[in-house]
């Protein structure tokens, strides 16, 4: 369990993390979501006592990080893939960490096998790809078999197979009752793995909610209807008391009734339909809408794009992939 209370980080005048209070609970994957520059990494570094909070405190199972005995056995973290000595073999990097926390050296081989680096254990990470570096960082996080695992942007640089692997790993760790805290700037990634969501923007807490709740609240669904007989359809809908927005000639959007009901209505009134399709606003759009005003770094053009996506967020809005610049 990780508890943050009023955590604030200020560099001079600039407030990077602003009064964050939330709790990360065991037994589920908690996604830590926010655009680039929102303060996710700074927050995670403060959790590990690497950066000092200007105000507020972080407790790991009720204790500040610096007071933990052999902290790697309690909480394992991947902060960035390059937090290893490039000139020391992968095995030796982990061995040095293991020795400092009196972790049995057999664990080093175990975690290297687990992340798929068994064959390059004796190689120096200097020559590793980003994905391999990421795997080594994850191995380091798992080294002490900790109850809490914290991963900062773990899918960065991983190939599809690696991404699948890390998702499965996180779910397994949570299923084992561990606390899993994972950051990402991609809503789509979180939607696949997280059970709980903590969203921040410009260092502020924007949401602290269950994933399902977030989906229910934010994914507006509607039905798109296309017909060569718009007049007849409009009458039919009006008769049933359903309002529809005509988006283009012969193209309607209905939010008040499900596709089944609309199909029945069309049949009853003998309206010819060319299309009847349920539409879902993507979570990505919900995320952008939520963090839109809070996004820190945006170029002029993408700011406009973000604003558009936020305001329309309808079925016709482009499926933004959320890679904000």
């Amino acid at each position: 369990m990780i508890e943050l209370a009023g955590v604030t980080k200020q560099y001079g005048e600039k407030v990077v993390v602003d009064d964050l209070t939330f709790t990360v609970r065991p037994g589920c994957v908690t996604g830590f979501l926010g655009p680039n520059g929102a303060g996710k990494s700074t927050t995670m570094r403060m959790m590990l006592g690497l950066d000092r909070a200007t105000a507020g405190r972080v407790l790991i199972d009720g204790e500040p990080y610096a007071r933990l005995k052999e902290p790697l056995r309690r909480i394992g973290a991947l902060l960035d893939a390059k937090a290893m000595h490039g000139g020391r073999s992968a095995y030796d990097n982990l061995r040095c960490l293991a020795l400092s926390n009196r972790i049995p050296l057999a664990r080093v081989d175990e975690v290297l096998q687990e992340v798929g680096l068994g064959e390059v254990a004796k190689k120096r990470p200097k020559g590793f790809s980003l994905g391999m570096g990421q795997r080594l960082g994850i191995a380091a996080a798992l080294l002490g078999d900790p109850e809490i695992v914290m991963l900062d942007e773990p899918v960065n640089g991983l190939d599809p197979e690696g991404i699948h692997w890390i998702r499965t790993l996180m779910k397994r760790l949570a299923a084992e009752g561990r606390t899993v805290f994972v950051s990402s700037h991609l809503m789509s990634e979180m939607a696949l793995t997280a059970d709980h969501l903590v969203v921040i923007g410009r260092g502020r807490l924007l949401a602290d909610t269950g994933m399902q709740e977030f989906i229910d609240r934010n994914s507006r669904s509607s039905v798109r209807i296309r017909t060569p007989e718009p007049e007849k359809l409009r009458d039919a809908l009006a008769a049933a008391g359903i309002t529809a927005t005509e988006q283009a000639s012969g193209v309607f959007e209905v939010t008040e009734a499900p596709a089944e009901r609309l199909g029945e209505l069309a049949l009853e009134h003998h309206v010819l339909l060319h299309e009847l399709s349920p539409q879902h606003a993507s979570l990505e759009e919900a995320f952008i809408a939520l963090t839109g005003e809070a996004a820190e770094y945006r170029t002029g053009t993408s700011a406009t794009a973000t604003a558009d996506a936020a305001s329309s967020a309808g079925p016709d809005a482009p499926q933004t992939t959320g890679t904000e610049s």
Binding site: R45, L48, G49, L50, P71, L72, A77, L79, D80, K82, A83, M84, H85, G86, G87, N93, L97, S100, N101, A140
Partner: peptide, 10 residues
């Protein structure tokens, strides 16, 4: 190398 962060976390 950035190893200082791993070292101080340990």
């Amino acid at each position: 190398t950035g190893a200082i962060r791993s070292s101080l976390a340990a």
